[in-house]
């Protein structure tokens, strides 16, 4: 099996602070990779650097696109801005921590979902609407809210709308930055369960950044533990959580309140 994404020696410094220090890993199709660490560990920076939303200082990110006809891997740091934006629209998705950053708050829910379709050339109003409805159902938002503005949605609903907006073009890789941050526990549970189902049914590959071990346990197959910009431990999720080797991982696990 060939990896979907190869990250090699990715580094990013802010002045004297090494936010990411030679991070390397491979992601295979259908895998959910969790990246866990405290605030300031560099995990969000890593995600932004992989998506080239901030420039990395060094390293390489290679994406093996299943939709790419030639089969040639893409060097994310050297493709043009136009190709990168196309990639982000078609094959990748980015779910942000705050739904407001990932949605257009001034247009209706249906338009939010339909935008990526319209970006990729869909020009039939009726079909776009049908597709948007379908996705609202998938993320368990009542379809009669389709013509409402996201500002009238609860936090959990906004997050689910963000999911729908990202998944509508059936991406292969989804990057998620603390997708359940700031939500109530029960709302989190619902969102996580939904994400779990969708990842399985759509065979998505996900890189999930969070500080919440519960989220990791539920969703991730593999886990990277980050501390001060470095990956201190990695392995299968249950491996790292049940048999932590590194001192930082051990203190992280033992600090958790809920088993």
């Amino acid at each position: 099996m060939k990896p979907l994404l190869d990250v090699s020696n990715l580094s990013k410094t802010y002045g004297a602070v090494r936010a990411c220090d030679r991070i390397s890993f491979s992601l295979y199709p259908g895998q959910i990779l969790g990246i866990i660490g405290e605030s300031g560990s560099g995990k969000s920076t890593l995600l932004s650097a992989i998506a080239r939303q901030i420039p990395a200082d060094s390293g390489k990110v290679t994406y093996h696109s299943p939709k790419n006809g030639t089969g040639e891997p893409l060097d994310i740091f050297s493709i043009s801005e136009s190709e990168r934006r196309q990639l982000m629209r078609n094959e990748w998705g980015f779910v942000r921590q705050h739904a407001r950053d990932g949605l257009r708050m001034k247009v209706t829910a249906g338009a939010n979902i339909g935008e990526r379709l319209m970006d990729t050339g869909h020009r039939h109003y009726g079909n776009i609407r049908t597709e948007a409805k379908r996705w609202l159902e998938q993320v368990e938002i009542p379809t009669n809210r389709m013509d409402d503005l996201p500002g009238t949605f609860s936090g959990g609903m906004q997050q689910r709308l963000q999911l729908a907006r990202v998944l509508v073009t059936q991406p292969r890789l989804v990057l998620m930055d603390e997708p359940t941050g700031g939500l109530d526990v029960s709302v989190q549970a619902r969102l996580l369960d939904l994400m779990r189902q969708l990842v399985r049914s759509l065979n998505l590959s996900v890189i999930l950044v969070t500080h919440d071990i519960g989220v990791i346990r539920l969703l991730a197959h593999r886990l990277l533990v980050m501390n001060c910009g470095e990956v201190v431990e990695q392995g299968l999720t249950d491996q790292v959580l049940d048999d932590p080797h590194h001192s930082y991982t051990q203190s992280l696990i033992s600090a958790t309140l809920v088993p």
Binding site: G235, L236, D238, Q239, D242, D243, H245
Partner: peptide, 9 residues
Amino acid sequence: MRSLYANYR
């Protein structure tokens, strides 16, 4: 047993 399952390394 856990080592066999790769739960422990």
